[in-house]
């Protein structure tokens, strides 16, 4: 599996899709996203975050080496 939750190891150089989640509960959508990324062999990482969806996606994009991002917001 290529996924990773929480902080990435300091020596992890792999470009990953950044998936940032806001809110207390993980949305059911997350599992679907993770399974899709895994089946396609795309590395990803999931972070918990606070904020509004679009701005989170922007922040995620700034944090991504692979320049592919998404954020999930309960609303």
């Amino acid at each position: 599996m290529s996924g990773c939750r929480g902080p990435i190891e300091g020596d992890d150089d792999l470009p990953r899709v950044q998936v940032w989640i806001a809110g207390d509960r993980e949305p059911d959508l997350l599992a679907g996203i993770e399974h899709g990324l895994e089946e396609e062999g795309v590395p990803w990482v999931v972070h918990e975050a606070e904020g509004e969806g679009v701005s989170l996606a922007y922040e995620a994009s700034r944090a991504s080496r692979g320049t592919s991002r998404s954020s999930i917001h309960p609303n």
């Binding site: 599996m1 399974h35 895994e38 089946e39 396609e40 062999g41």
Partner: peptide
């Protein structure tokens, strides 16, 4: 279904 990698993993 499109699950081959998921099963293999």
């Amino acid at each position: 279904r499109d699950d081959a990698v998921l099963i293999d993993n």
